[in-house]
Design a protein around this nucleic acid. Sequence first.
DNA 1: TATTGTTATACTCTATAACTATA
DNA 2: TATAGTTATAGAGTATAACAATA
Lengths: 148, 148
Amino acid sequence: MADARNVLPDPEPGQDELVDALVENAFMTMAALTRIGAEHDMSLTQLRVLGILRDRRVRITVLADFLGLDKSTMTGLVGRAEKRGLLQRAPNPDDGRAVDVFVTEAGAALIDRARAQVDRELAPRIDELTPAEQRRLQSLLQRMRPAH
Amino acid sequence: MADARNVLPDPEPGQDELVDALVENAFMTMAALTRIGAEHDMSLTQLRVLGILRDRRVRITVLADFLGLDKSTMTGLVGRAEKRGLLQRAPNPDDGRAVDVFVTEAGAALIDRARAQVDRELAPRIDELTPAEQRRLQSLLQRMRPAH
DNA sequence: TATTGTTATACTCTATAACTATA
DNA sequence: TATAGTTATAGAGTATAACAATA
């Protein structure tokens, strides 16, 4: 099954190794998220929407801005998730033009389950490090975040 | 323009902070890759294909397996990139069924430019750390990689 | 006039199933 | 029989443009 011809050959080593490590790590993490999303018939974006709404109630435009998507794209994403009973729309009481979105119980349960799965998926990778190293990694990653 | 209503409110803090940091970092990195890809009218996947082929010549199935995509998806991806002159197909000399794929000069130039852009995009984040911390971060990320 | 959201449209990405050619 | 790749088809994700309702 694991034929030698079917394995990607190594390239020559490069120099931007930290960038490479960040990118590779990002792909690994996104692959886990994508796989877990797929188990629930959810795209990465839908999973993200649910995660954002887990503890918030926001209008469509806020979601679109945060995700860097067009309003019209959000209409579709929200519509499909609403049809599955994972979230709901309601008119904003303060602005007649706006529509608030929030998770249903089913949506909250799904995202909680998905989050637990993500923890379990990433555990083997994280456990390659000692607890002290884990704390150091967390601290370094947090310091790299865009300014707050 | 930056209306308070348009900013995502903070949730309550959670406990799985290392997982959160990894996921957040992955989204930040992917956002940079996606943005740079878009500047070249390339999807993240197309950018990745070009990156993989930068220093390799492989058959369609190897690409599909590595990316976790179906063969038929690869046909489309390769076809569109080929039509744009970024890569080329050629029959595999050893296996009459197989098709090798490799980048053209234009494709190599594009991926090199994109990589330089990625370095520049991530530099401000990386520069939040001292050189010693950067080395430590790289080492920690590399140790988290799936077994070799 | 500007903003919020939806609709119509079009293209890319993706998988499944059926097919051809080769092994 | 099994594998490599393509084609046909269908659904999701995405953006642009035009629109209605509200501010």
